[in-house]
Amino acid sequence: MTRSPSALAVDQGALDDAVRSDAALRRFLHGLPGVDQVGAEARAAALSTRSIKTTAKAFAIDLAISMIDLTTLQGNDTQGKVRTLCAKAMRPDPHDASVPRTAAVCVYNDLVGQAREELGDSGVRVAAVTTAFPSGRASLAVKLADTRDAVVQGADEVDMVIDRGAFLSGRYLEVFEEIQAVKQVCHENGADAHLKVILETGELATYDNVRRASWLAMMAGADFIKTSTGKISPAATLPVTLVMLEACRDWRDATGRMMGMKPAGGISTTKDAMKYLVLVNETVGTDWLTPDWFRFGASSLLNDLLLQRQKMSTGRYSGPDYVTVD
């Protein structure tokens, strides 16, 4: 494995110091080394040319399926739609019991109860988007109530959005404290919901901002950092994911703790998914090649993975008639 060395010399003490005041936090985040934009894009492009075939491909397809947060986040979501989505998450291919389950089902807050009921003890987790997803434009009280609602209904994972307005205008401590507050709600009354922090990289404008936002989220207690809501274009891209994975790697170097990563939005083909897996393997290593630490936020990706899987197991090309319509 080739691994570019960490450019950071951060330890736990420095991190503790950084969050003492708005000024200290700003100093820390702006003191992070800048991202080499050309280098990041070139590296992402170079890694996406790898050819993954036969047994490696079969392994990667199953791994990718098991990493999917099967998502439906539409205004017209119904209970019936959530029910079918849950059935699909538990048994992606009705004809083939050897297909692994997806990692989670990701729905809006008010449908968490429904999803919880459908999934039961299948092992598929329930993720809820909260904090006034996707814009995040609501008061802190509303955001916390939104999150509390999801946790009470039984969400295993909470996908929150950061306040991009505050972040972009430099009020870092405000964003930091908001994440902390949401994190606290995730653990209220003995609950233990994982917190995924959505940076919405499509609105952050630069890779430097992506790196800063990643560190901000990690320091505030995120369990996962996630690229996008999927409502803004561009959503997840390979270079952005690379920058965030590097942050995860540096975070482990600094603190000894692992950090989950979830690209979301715009990943719709098996080929795309393979590129992300290669990126993970080459940036943070095989420790991350598990649904515990890496997820795909996707919906149509699953069908493409299933088509490829059917091709590999039957030897003939499959078609959209042989996967569910969703």
Partner: peptide
């Protein structure tokens, strides 16, 4: 043969 076996043909 690939066209003949293709499930979407």
């Amino acid at each position: 043969p690939w066209l003949a076996s293709h499930m979407d043909v």
